[in-house]
Each structure stands twice: as structure tokens, then as C-alpha cells.
Nucleic acid binder design. Structure first.
Lengths: 319, 319
DNA sequence: TCTTCACATGCAAACGTTTGCATGTCAGTG
DNA sequence: CACTGACATGCAAACGTTTGCATGTGAAGA
């Protein structure tokens, strides 16, 4: 691990000034093409790579964005990570991923830690209070995903419209009693989904019972199946696919057939696997949402706009 | 986003030298306790936070480690990311995650990009050639996970022993014909697993057919079910749980019952969900593996040791 | 009372870039 | 042939730390 060559090394070997080398990389058009070529050639020969720390120090730009999520094992966030990283790559950035477990204090702590290294932060379904977010936005650029807080640039992956369609479909197929298995409370997604379910159910004259799966785990979904079976509903809408799969498994164990006895609709469409029968769901355009978020960050748009990215109903075998 | 206070601001307000402030943070014991207290208090009051870029420039330490993986949506890597980040956190580091899709060139490109920012790299199931790795190790610290290359510090999450047990269990239950559904070729894990299956099968006098699922996706697993059914085997061992679940679904569609007609054993135990019947598998200690890797990096142990982390057989309902 | 030394702190260089300004050259114009 | 500019490049300061060395202080020992 010999120490790498610096801009000065390259400059000396060529008998030019360090600034010339710097410009050959950052501002080649103001140099004589021949000079640029010589510098680049020599740099390649020596294996010169700019020192990002030094660059960051002078320019204030570190080339890093932070992505703050709740749970890496949730497939939703897998898609989020991939999209974020891909877009960052396109913008010559690197992404640093932080998992913070639905715990606001931990989230704050971890954010404080990455803060000094990043140019900006994408917060997915953050648990931070409005006050803390405002404070945060004074220290760095912030873009919110799936949090609808006025004044912030925010991207919302909306399931509302597709869910509406889905419920009408269920009602059309004869469903009268509905259960909604809710996910993490206080999240924008939960509020939007539960709100939509309640509203549309009311419009269509469907009864709806609420069952909770606060942590959003598979196990909770399976446990929820018991109360669902007791409630003798015709259809279930779940907060997301992980929960939906839990419900599916739970119902199967109890001898309830899906979709014959009960129809089931999930949300996200992010699972790396399928089950049998294949789950009907709302496919969210998570990629689009995070790509948009990263772009907004990079552009430095502190515009505070509210961007909605709609999902689409994907009917498979459980409805 | 007013520009944050620097060490010099703090120093001036207190009438001390910048170096004193620096020492109050990094080397408090050589200062008068009272001074330390005053500095810390004033720093807190001003909201002073050390500039990591400047620190990185002088010390050469960026506080960042890179984690290079193949596929974020694979649950194996979800556990890897979590463990890495947690351990990094404990060591006051941040982790930067890079997904590179089983593509050596892309991997090289992305590594080159993060290289200047990180103190070291954890490469999980890398696709890089030995030559490239050697070259890489001259430029930064490298720890390998699930690649067994002599000379490098490497951590191996081994399924061998547990797989051996599992196959003996299958044989004991009367299995005579085995299928192995292989994952990404050229990976150490694949070599170890397939090697173990073949060896143990031979020892027990079992016939074994190889079916491939090169990309390691659910869909390939499901497709593989067809050839499995044709081969009329008694038991299937799959490279990992994602594939195993695909196989399970595929077999179910074909009317083959698991475990009655065919027994099924997966590997990893990382899925955020379960299916019905619950999958028997080898639970790998992925956390332990990555925690070890990060520690080795942080300690700067270029010792080149080979660390084996064994998995345990977890019998559930498919065997 | 003078010397010695430990201890606490200050000074200034260094880390590797970027960038505003100064300088030098040369072609084109009058 | 002198003058103006455009153009290419050099010079040096700045970014915010860390750290080896120098300095100043006061207490302990002689």
C-alpha cells in the first residue's frame, strides 16, 4: 500500500503547475488540448487518482449521499437501495445506507453520525418529528420519501388510486366484509392506505375491520390470520406483501382457502419470491420514487415540491 | 444552511489555540481537565462538529468502509448489510454499500469509484479475478467473505458440515435419488455446497443430478422443478432459500407434494417470510461472518487468515 | 534562592486539492 | 512597429484538521 501519487507528483514530472493538472481534470476546455492530453496520459501512467478528501475539503462536496431506511430486510427497501445507488452512480455519487429500525432516537443518532460526510440525505419513511426535520434541514439538504411534510421536497409512492381500484374489484366480486391489516402506525404510507381503504369501503357500503401488524413482519401477518378468520370477512387488504404473505400462510394453516373463501390484496410488489397462489398486489414504482429523490438532492432543489408517484394494481391469483 | 463553526471559531471564543480544541477531542488526557471541560462546553454550545473531510485529509482515515455485494434484493445480503452496518457503527465507522450484479467489470468499476473514499473493503462473494484482487489489495485493505483465496484475510460462512448432516438425514429417511439445484457458478459457496453434496451422496451411495439456477433467482428455481419432477428424485437440496422456494412453488404447481413425495432442503435461512410448509434449511451465521470481516478490516489485520463460520442444520417441515 | 523538570499549551507545517488573480506569450489590428 | 486582447499557464491562498516541536509556567528538590 505505497502512498498514491498526488497531483504535485504528476505536475513535477511534466514540469507544469499543480493547478494545470487539476484543470486538466476539472476544466479541460480552458487548457491547450495538447496539454490536457499529456497530463491525462501521465496521470494514467502513474495511476494518479484524485484524493476525494482533499477535494471535499476545498469544494465542500463529498460525493456522498445518505439513504436512511428502516429495515434492510424488508424487500421494499431493497428496491429503494438499488434505485438510489444506481441513480447515485449515474450522478457520480456514492450512497451510504443507514438502517435505523423504526426508532426515532437511533435514527437521529445515526443521522448525526453520517451528517458530516454527506452532501445530502434521502429519508425514507422517517420517524423524526417535524421539529427535528426542520432542524436537520438547516444543516444539510434533505429529501423525504413517503413522508408528507409541507415545506420539504418529498416524493410519495402512492398506492391510493390502485387500492381504490382493487377494492372496487373486490366489491364487484361480491365482497361485503373487509379486513385491513395495518402496518407501522404514524407512517405516511399507513395513513394513506388505511385512509383509502376506509373511504372506499364506506363509499361501497363495505364493513371493514382493522387488524394491526405494527412492526410489519411476516409473523404478525400470520398471527393476524386468526382474528381475520374469526371476523369471517370476504376479503383482506394488507399493508404490504410481507404481511400479506403472513396472512396467506396463517389462513392456509387454519384451513381457509385463498382466494376461494377469502380474497387477499397486498401492496409493494417487492418480494424476491412468490408463493402459491401468487399474490395480487399494488405495484409501487419505488425505483421512480427514489431516483426522483436522489435527483432532487443532487440538483440542490430545496424547492419543497410534493411529487406523487402512483402505483398500479396488479391482479394475480389471490383476488 | 449557514456554514458550521470550525475548530478555530471555538478556539478564538475561548482564547485558546486551535490545537487545544483538537486535543480536547482527540487526546483529552494531556490537557488540564478544566480546559477540556471548557472546550467541550463551548463546542457543544456552538454546535461544533469536526469536519470529517479535513480530518480525513490529515489523518488519512475517512471513517468509511465499503461493502461490495452482488444483489441487494437477495435476503442473504440484507443480513450482510445489517451486520456490517451494525459493527461499523460500533467501531465509529460508516458503511457504504455497493451492489454490482455478478458482473466483474461493473464490480471493478464501482470499486474504483469508492476506493478513494474508504479505508477498506469487504467483498462478499466477489467475482474479481485473483490478479485483480491482488492489485486491489495494494491500494486498500481488503477482507473477503465467501471467497477462499490464499493470502487474503477471508471469512467463510460454511454450510458443509450442516449439509452433510442434512443429507444423512435425508438418506436415513429413505432417499435414494437426489437433485442439487446449483446457484451462481464460480462462487466459493456453490463450490463448497455442490462439493459437499456430491461427496456425501457418493459416501451414502445416493444418485445425484445437478440442475442449475445460475442467477440464483426464484424464477429459475421454479423452472428447475420441471426437470426435478422428471428425474423422479426423492429429495432436493437447493443452493439457497430463494431457489428452494422457487422449487417448492414449481413442484406444488406440478402436483408434487413436499415433503411427502419429495423432501427439500434450502440454505441461508434469511428470508423475511415463510411459506407453507416451512422450509428446512441450513442457517448460516451471516452476522458473525460480516462482523468478523469488519473487525478484521478495522484492526488492519492484513494477516491473511482463513476464518470459518459454520452454519447449523435447521429442520422444519420440508424434510 | 536557584535549578530542574513535568506539564499544559501555543506555533506552524503539513495533508492534496481548487480557484481567483497575476503573468507571459503571441496573433491580429491600426 | 507598437498596442490590444485573447489565451494558456503559473502562483499562492484557502479549506479545517492534526501533530511534532517549541515555549512558558510553576512546583519540587537542592
Amino acid at each position: 500500500m505505497a502512498k498514491p501519487p498526488t497531483i504535485v507528483d504528476v505536475a513535477h514530472m511534466l514540469g507544469v503547475a499543480p493547478s494545470t493538472v487539476s484543470r486538466a481534470f476539472n476544466n479541460p476546455r480552458i487548457l491547450k488540448p495538447d496539454t490536457v492530453a499529456r497530463v491525462l496520459a501521465k496521470a494514467a501512467e502513474l495511476g494518479y487518482v484524485p484524493n476525494r478528501h482533499a477535494q471535499a475539503l476545498t469544494t465542500g462536496r463529498s460525493g456522498l449521499v445518505g439513504l436512511v431506511i428502516r429495515d434492510v430486510s424488508n424487500p421494499f427497501f431493497a428496491r429503494a437501495i438499488r434505485a438510489t445507488q444506481r441513480e447515485a452512480e449515474r450522478l457520480s455519487l456514492n450512497a451510504i445506507v443507514v438502517e435505523c429500525d423504526s426508532d426515532a432516537d437511533r435514527e437521529q443518532r445515526l443521522i448525526d453520525r453520517v451528517l458530516p460526510q454527506v452532501e445530502g440525505l434521502v429519508l425514507a419513511s422517517t420517524r423524526l418529528s417535524a421539529a427535528r426535520l426542520t432542524e436537520l434541514s438547516r444543516r444539510t439538504r434533505v429529501v423525504l420519501v413517503n413522508s408528507d411534510l409541507a415545506g420539504f421536497t418529498r416524493v410519495l409512492a402512492s398506492a391510493s388510486e390502485a387500492l381504490d381500484q382493487g377494492i372496487r374489484l373486490l366489491a364487484g366480486a361480491g365482497a361485503r366484509k373487509l379486513a385491513y391489516v395495518g402496518g407501522p402506525p404514524y407512517s405516511w404510507s399507513e395513513a394513506e392506505r388505511w385512509g383509502t381503504v376506509r373511504r372506499v369501503a364506506a363509499e361501497r357500503g363495505l364493513a371493514v375491520t382493522y387488524v394491526s401488524a405494527n412492526m410489519g413482519t411476516y409473523g404478525e401477518g400470520r398471527a393476524a390470520a386468526v382474528s381475520i378468520a374469526e371476523a369471517e370477512v370476504d376479503a383482506v387488504v394488507a399493508f404490504d406483501d410481507v404481511i400479506a404473505h403472513g396472512v396467506l400462510d396463517g389462513l392456509t394453516i387454519l384451513g381457509v382457502r385463498v382466494p376461494e373463501d377469502v380474497r387477499l390484496l397486498g401492496c409493494d410488489d417487492a418480494l424476491p419470491i412468490e408463493t402459491h397462489p401468487r399474490l395480487s398486489t399494488v405495484r409501487l414504482d419505488i425505483e421512480q420514487a427514489f431516483v426522483t429523490a436522489v435527483r432532487a438532492l443532487a440538483e440542490g432543489s430545496v424547492s419543497g415540491q410534493r411529487i406523487l408517484v402512483p402505483g398500479v394494481l396488479t391482479v394475480r391469483e389471490t383476488t
